[in-house]
């Protein structure tokens, strides 16, 4: 397995580089932390009295507990979009060419960027849980609950990262990838990320019920507010895994296509 060692080292080195450049560029990570936390705070303040008074809310200790999962998903989505845009900038700027013209394994070009997205996604999930905990949130499922939440966040980070890489490879334009962000944001609002499915009405409800993000959020949320079962955990993990397989597979094909067209 000596052939695998360079790939692992190259993946680690490229992931490290992506993480370092993200951390050193505040506009790359600030929105991914700021917006979810602000929305979490605003919704918690606005709807703090909703559980128990407005029908459709599940039983919960506080609205903050309810809001954490949505914030994690939102943060991963914003972070993944920036990562995709950064990858596209690598293509535009010539870093990608430098990699391709060197013996760098083609796999690690992909896994390096994905690894960074996953690492940042996990860090973000843990940070959000910790911040929410400071303000009184609790994870009902305990350590196992936290693990389930982090696993789903990890897989979702891979899924969003894969999508970002796919878009970057197909458009080759950082602006084009960043331009997809409003669409992703709409996708988030057409889900149960911020409010329960049962309070929604009409076609909005139907769309949200079809949105896979709804099931990721629900699965994480159960772990936090209570009512989780093996089944709810596996549903979330399974859907996140499915999404990740689809987008990472698509990005691998897009990389092969780009290398075939050019090289």
């Amino acid at each position: 397995m000596t052939a695998a060692i360079p790939v692992i080292r190259q993946t680690a080195a490229l992931a490290w580089r992506s993480i370092v450049t993200t951390i050193r560029l505040p506009q790359a990570w600030f929105p991914a932390l700021f917006f979810p936390l602000v929305l979490m705070a605003i919704f918690t303040a606005s709807f703090g009295g909703a559980p128990g008074t407005i029908p459709g809310f599940p039983p919960m200790r506080s609205f903050l507990d309810f809001a954490v999962s949505g914030a994690i998903i939102q943060g991963v989505l914003i972070g993944g979009t920036s990562a995709g845009a950064a990858f596209a900038t690598d293509i535009e700027g010539g870093f990608f060419d430098r990699l391709v013209a060197s013996p760098t394994s083609r796999t690690s070009i992909l896994t390096g960027r994905l690894g960074a997205s996953i690492a940042l996604g996990v860090g973000q999930a843990l940070l959000f849980i910790a911040i929410a905990a400071i303000f009184g949130a609790r994870v009902d499922g305990g350590l196992i609950g936290i693990i389930v939440v982090v696993v789903i966040a990890t897989l979702f980070a891979a899924a969003v990262g894969g999508l970002g890489i796919f878009l970057a490879l197909r458009t080759g334009s950082g602006e084009a990838v960043q331009g997809m962000f409003p669409l992703f944001f709409a996708l988030l609002f057409f889900s149960s990320a911020f409010f329960p499915l049962d309070t929604m009405v009409g076609w909005y409800h139907d769309v949200a019920a079809l949105n896979p993000i709804t099931y990721l959020v629900e699965s994480m949320r159960r772990e936090i507010i209570g009512g989780a079962t093996i089944w709810t955990a596996l549903t979330g993990i399974g859907i996140a895994l499915g999404l990740a397989l689809i987008t990472v597979g698509a990005s691998a094909l897009a990389l092969r296509r780009r290398l075939r067209v050019s090289a």
Partner: peptide, 22 residues
Amino acid sequence: DAAIDPYMTGRELLRLQGVLHG
């Protein structure tokens, strides 16, 4: 016009390039 990461240092980039070359 090869873009060189503006947020990395020269030394970091050289070491990274070395790893990429195995």
